[in-house]
Design a binder for these strands. Structure first.
Length: 544
RNA sequence: UGGGGUGUCGCCAAGUGGUAAGGCACCGGGUUUUGAUCCCGGCAUUCGCAGGUUCGAAUCCUGCCACCCCAGCCA
């Protein structure tokens, strides 16, 4: 089933194997995928999902889907539903869904404990004052005047914060670590703030919310996570992660291991930027086929298996990386090549009249759905006097090695007969409007007795039986390989969507095929919402 | 001369002291009723740079250089 996946071994798997070998894992491998429900998942998340779920599966463990919902201002139920759907679509199963908010009471209690032990305090500096006294990258910070606040007073204040007595910004709880630390995260980090907003899970139960650094490690510990995998930017937070777990009464302490995020050429991967693309309507929603979101890739027609294969091929390291788009496209083609039925669709039509075939006479042809996989069966194709071929498949003055139709030249119509072009007809403005051709009955596909030699093979459709469809072709969203967040809007390719009409072979529509290769063009996906619309997933490789 | 990371082929990535895997891309050639697929073959005397240790170094040591991350009451 997953035979396509490459052999995976990376520093994280090696580490886990080592832990297993040394018997330090009491409950086996337990990982978690911890998205904040404040946006849709993208292919970068897919990398993390493949890692977390993949590793657990490989080592016989389990994975929790944990929503990191500590900021009610940004999070919503819409996102938790979408995230679940995307993960399932990607083909992974969690053992449980948890929410950081499930643990709010315990987290609160740990904060109370820390205050009681003099390891945390309620700080009543304004946000601005906290910022200023934090120091800079080179200069140490200075202690808050509230650092020495009596324990009892902090406890009292914290309880009243919870009770809703204060406005946002009036007080926060801070850890008492070291304002002189070269690691800014250790300069008395804020762990609780007041937010008077309804939470999508806890409603109005709380008006104080714990911050990520305090919450995440506690949840990992409470859930017995064996390996807490996250991205590189959290490396500086690890000392804080460890400090918290070392200073509260939990007796379990998972290791945090960081890996590099996925970079992909010609797109952006931050939620903030993706959000702007949607909000400012550069794209048509989160699931626009040009988006690197899971839902966008899905709507584009990318199979989940191709995404998994891609994630397996890019590996997991600590190196910054920007993967070329051609690797993703390779993975998509590799999957679709084996699985997608073939069909014919003419996108830029040129009329062809087969002059030696009587009006209303129809020849029935048979064509396999797949050249290498007979099990997919075959369909019937009609051949008549009026046909359409691709404009680009005829050239008055062909270059050397042109393998298509030319004046007086012969080509085979895929699955059909060889035809010869006898005459090209132009309208008053000099535009080519029609080709008159002769077909050779003896050259019928599969039983050719004509002895004729065609220049090449082109796709076509029969004029009276084909279906008119809408074809959407997508280019890169950006015209530079690595858009910078500062000016990414300036590099958006405004012409990344091309919509045109296509003439589609009848059988493709009748059989309601979702993923189809339009021969000689590319792989297409029948849009799930728009009728008679096909989205181009990826082009075929062009060999010349 | 704040701290934390990373540097192996155009893009990824193995390699963990014994003499540079693999994939994508690219370039040749073969098959082919998709200029697709498929199949063969080519593609780093060299591992950011400079020294050093060693019989032997991408792997150890020293010193440089480059790039990324951190100063949210975001995650």
């Amino acid at each position: 089933m997953e035979s396509m996946a490459v052999e995976k071994t990376d520093f994280i798997r090696q580490r886990i194997q080592k832990d297993l070998d040394q018997g330090v894992l009491d409950s086996g491998v337990i990982t978690r995928f911890p998205p904040e429900p404040n946006g849709y998942l993208h292919i970068g998340h897919a990398k993390s999902i493949c890692l977390n779920f993949g590793v657990a599966k490989e080592f016989g463990g389990k994975t929790f889907l944990r929503f990191d919902d500590t900021n009610p201002l940004k999070e919503s139920e819409e996102y938790v539903a979408a995230i679940q759907a995307d993960i399932e679509w990607l083909g992974f199963q969690w053992s449980d869904i948890t929410f950081a908010s499930n643990h709010f009471e315990e987290i609160y209690q740990y904060a109370v404990d820390l205050i009681s032990e003099g390891k945390a305090y309620v700080c009543s500096l304004s946000p601005e004052e906290i910022r200023v006294t934090r120091g800079t990258l080179k200069e140490p910070g200075v202690d808050s005047p509230f650092r020495a606040r009596p324990v009892a007073e902090s406890i009292d204040l914290f309880k009243r914060m919870r009770g809703g007595e204060f406005k946002e910004g009036e007080h926060v709880v801070r850890l008492k670590i070291d304002m002189g630390s070269p690691n800014i995260n250790l300069r008395d980090p804020v762990i609780y703030r007041i937010i008077h907003a309804s939470h999508h899970k806890t409603g109005d139960d709380w008006c104080i919310y714990p911050m990520y650094d305090f919450t995440h490690c506690i949840c990992d510990a409470l859930e017995g996570i064996s390996h807490s995998l996250c991205t590189l930017e959290f490396e500086d937070h690890r000392p804080l992660y460890d400090w918290v777990l070392d200073n509260i009464s939990v007796n379990y302490h998972p290791p945090q291991i960081e890996f590099s995020r996925l970079g992909l050429e010609y797109t952006v991967m931050s939620k903030r930027l993706l959000n702007r693309l949607v909000d400012e309507e550069f794209v048509d929603g989160w699931n626009d086929p040009r988006m690197p979101t899971v839902s966008g890739l899905k709507r584009r027609g990318v199979p989940a298996r191709a995404i998994r294969d891609f994630c397996a091929r890019i590996g997991v390291t600590k190196q910054e990386n920007t993967i070329e788009m051609n690797l993703l496209e390779f993975c998509i083609r590799a999957d679709l090549e084996k699985t997608a039925p073939r069909g014919m669709c003419v996108i830029d039509p040129l009329k062809v009249v087969v002059t030696n075939l009587p009006e209303n006479e129809i020849e029935k042809l048979s064509a396999d759905w797949h050249p290498q996989n007979p099990e997919l069966g075959a369909r019937e194709i009609l051949f008549g006097r009026d046909l359409y071929i691709e404009k680009g498949d005829f050239l008055e003055e062909p270059p050397a090695k042109f393998k298509r139709l030319t004046p007086g030249g012969m080509v085979r119509l895929r699955y059909g007969f060889i035809i010869r072009c006898d005459e090209a007809i132009y309208d008053d403005s000099g535009a080519l409007t029609q080709l008159n051709c002769t077909y050779f009955p003896e050259s019928r596909s599969g039983q050719d007795k004509s002895g004729l030699k065609a220049r090449g093979v082109i796709h076509w459709v029969e004029a009276n039986s084909c279906e008119l469809v809408s074809v959407r072709q997508y280019g890169r969203l950006f015209n530079v390989p690595m858009p910078k967040s500062a000016d990414f809007v300036d590099h958006i390719d405004k012409n990344s969507l091309t919509e045109s009409q296509g003439l589609l072979e009848k059988a493709v529509m009748e059989n309601e095929i979702d993923r189809i290769q339009f021969e000689r063009i590319g792989y297409f996906y029948r849009d799930p919402d728009l009728p008679r619309t096909y989205n181009k997933t990826v082009s075929l490789r062009e060999g010349f």
